[in-house]
Design a protein around this nucleic acid. Structure first.
Length: 587
RNA sequence: GGUCUGGUAGUUCAGUUGGUUAGAAUGCCGGCCUGUCACGCCGGAGGUCGCGAGUUCGAGUCUCGUCCAGACCGCCA
């Protein structure tokens, strides 16, 4: 037997027991006459003791053990004379009388501690060592637990988890596909799914009226801290439902996992239409942990002789409560913040509402105290507040002010990690103008139904139609999104024509789905949750990489296994691909 | 495709105005130490300053290029 107990198991109750433990040498403390070793496995740490007086040969061997050696020991559990309250096993230690080295280890390139000395890149290269650290074990455990609770909840509600294929068909709509060449069919390619969208709709046609899948999806786009080329979705679809049924089912799911995993009771989940989200928060995923709504100032700020304001579409600002005491330096810093290329504002106007009721602003030259008083009324500002104002094109300035709002939220400590503010954003536009290709494309996807009352618009003014689509947003993170789908051929063909598809093109790309819709498609709709993001939200950090066992870096490389990599000429030939290999750029 | 930041010992970093033999901490190796748990003390090894070119009497430091990493913009139905 390689072990009778795990390294986190032993307590005072076990005193006097003979035990066998196996694990990794985390650390040894050699005091000369006596050596302590912290033995680690997934479950914890147990202190081993070796004593020169008891067994000199054994203790000498123990002194030579290096970090991360894998060892097995036999010994007796004893009460410590000096207890360590920081360890769950800190009351006991194992007095070892037999030591076996199961495997030696090279000195690891970084310390395997909570506060490691290793940098990001190094830890990614040796991810298998990094995963030995508590923080990563904790994160993967969290991920497991969330997946389990989601499966429990959905299974209880009669959802079936059904797997859909990974080798499918490329469709030009939406993100770029990862593509897999076919050996058997020269010149033809599979694509990896961006989502199982069409398959889950086919399952609805097949009568599996409640489907879900914890599924890997693939998108060949550039990455961010919260984006990976392959990522996991909780993909769900239901038949014979309207939007409200989806909301109640998945609010239930959200409540369940928050309760089961974090013991948090979610507050009521408000709905906000997309138009208001953009107008009041400058974002389709507002962080509602704090208020600080946008206030539009065109009527009180324009035509007062300030050219910057007069020449723009929108003058809009936020009220930073209690920030009137901001120093010149702090205001300059905010100005720099909005002028950074990532934000891109030209400048920042501030108005301090002083405690004595007067105003001090960066535009005093153009606006009287009375003018600024009018602004203050619009902002519902009180003495001590600081109004921050941006101006520009509507869409741009809203986006910029959104960045500033979030920054002020951070500075004022209003974005608390353990506070959760969920909402549904609804009534997205159905279509979006694509500058590059000079045509409309579906904002969600081409199977999204328009709102019933906007259905007529599809033919005459499709750009005005609103979608029966919804996003589930928590703390400014889009954790899920979905829609009620089109299930009749007529609406679907109007949709395709609004998107500029000919009947022929539509048939070529989605013929299988259109055909299926001719055999009794039920009304249906669904939602997909970004599982990695959801886990990161629960874990309290921004980077989804921390919650993926083997993630890729921001250039799409796995630096541990060194992929992507070249393949042999023979492989290329088998796949009927050109055999020219560009010179490898890596050193 | 673009913007910004960084690359110096195994690791994390410092390195002033361009100027002697490039430092610290930690890790590693050796020695001492019987109650440590960030053990302590003494000693030692360890560097192509990412790579290439340029400016200069002289470059870790300045310039250009390039590679790598991170954050962001574009992109992500």
């Amino acid at each position: 037997m390689l072990r009778t107990h795990r390294c986190g198991d032993l307590r005072l109750d076990n005193k006097g027991e003979k035990v066998v433990l196996s694990g990794w040498v985390k650390k040894s403390r050699d005091l000369g006459g006596m050596t302590f070793i912290d033995l680690r496995d997934r479950y914890g740490i147990t202190q081993l003791v070796f004593d020169m007086e008891r067994d000199e040969a054994l203790c000498t061997r123990a002194r030579k053990l290096g970090r991360e050696f894998v060892i097995q020991v036999e010994g007796e559990v004893a009460e410590r004379s000096n207890k360590n309250p920081k360890l769950p096993t800190g009351d006991v230690e194992v007095i070892v009388y037999k030591l076996k080295v199961l495997n030696e280890s090279d000195t690891p390139p970084f310390t395997i501690e909570d506060e490691t000395d290793g940098g990001e890149e190094l830890r990614m290269k040796y991810r298998y060592l990094d995963l030995r650290r508590n923080v990563n074990q904790h994160n993967l455990k969290l991920r497991h637990k969330m997946a389990l609770e989601i499966r429990k909840y959905l299974s209880d509600k009669d959802f079936l988890e059904i797997e859909t294929p990974y080798l499918i068909k490329s469709t030009p709509e939406g993100a770029r596909d990862f593509v897999v060449p076919s050996r058997m069919h020269p010149g033809q390619f599979y694509a990896l799914p961006q989502s199982p969208q069409t398959f889950k709709q086919l399952l609805m046609v097949s009568g599996y009226d409640r489907y879900f899948q914890v599924v890997r999806c693939f998108r060949d786009e550039d990455f961010r801290a919260d984006r990976q080329p392959e990522f996991t979705q909780i993909d769900c679809e239901m038949s014979f439902v309207e939007r409200e049924d989806i909301f109640s089912t998945f609010e239930g799911m959200a409540r369940h996992i928050f309760k089961a995993v974090k013991n948090v009771d979610l507050p009521d989940i408000p709905r906000m239409n997309w138009h208001d989200a953009m107008k009041y928060y400058g974002s389709d995923k507002p962080d509602l942990r704090f208020d600080m709504q946008f206030v539009e100032l065109n009527d009180v700020a324009q035509n007062r002789g300030f050219k910057v304001f007069d020449s723009v579409e929108l003058v809009v600002g936020i009220n930073a409560k209690g920030c009137a005491a901001y120093s010149r330096k702090q205001l300059d810093k905010l100005t720099d913040f909005v002028k950074r290329p990532q934000v891109g504002a030209k400048g920042l106007v501030y108005v301090k509402y002083n405690e004595d009721g007067s105003f001090k602003s960066s535009v005093d030259k153009f606006f009287s105290q009375d003018d600024l008083g009018e602004w203050a009324r619009k902002f519902k500002a009180e003495p001590g507040d600081l109004m921050l104002v941006l101006a520009g094109d509507v869409m741009q300035v809203r986006k910029q002010l959104n960045e500033l709002r979030l920054e002020m939220g951070n500075q004022l400590g209003l974005r608390k990690r353990e506070e959760f503010a969920p909402l549904w954003v609804v009534d997205f536009p159905l279509l979006e103008w694509d500058e590059e290709n000079e045509r409309y494309h579906a904002m969600h996807h081409p199977f999204t139904a328009p709102l019933a009352e906007d259905k007529a618009l599809l033919e005459n003014a499709p750009q005005k139609a609103r979608a029966n689509a919804y996003d589930f947003v928590i703390n400014g993170v889009e954790v899920g999104g979905g829609s009620i789908r089109i299930h009749d051929k007529e609406t679907q063909s109007k949709m395709f024509s609004a998107l500029g598809f000919t009947d022929e093109e539509a048939k070529k790309q989605f013929g299988f789905l259109l055909k299926a819709f001719e055999y009794g498609a039920p009304p249906h709709g669904g939602i997909a949750f970004g599982f990695d993001r959801l886990v990161a939200l629960f874990g309290g950090t921004d980077s989804i990489r921390d919650y993926i066992a083997f993630p890729k870096n921001n250039a799409g490389r796995d630096i541990m296994i060194d992929s992507p990599s070249e393949i042999s000429k023979q492989q290329l030939e088998e796949l009927s691909l050109k055999t020219e290999i560009k010179e490898n750029k890596k050193p």
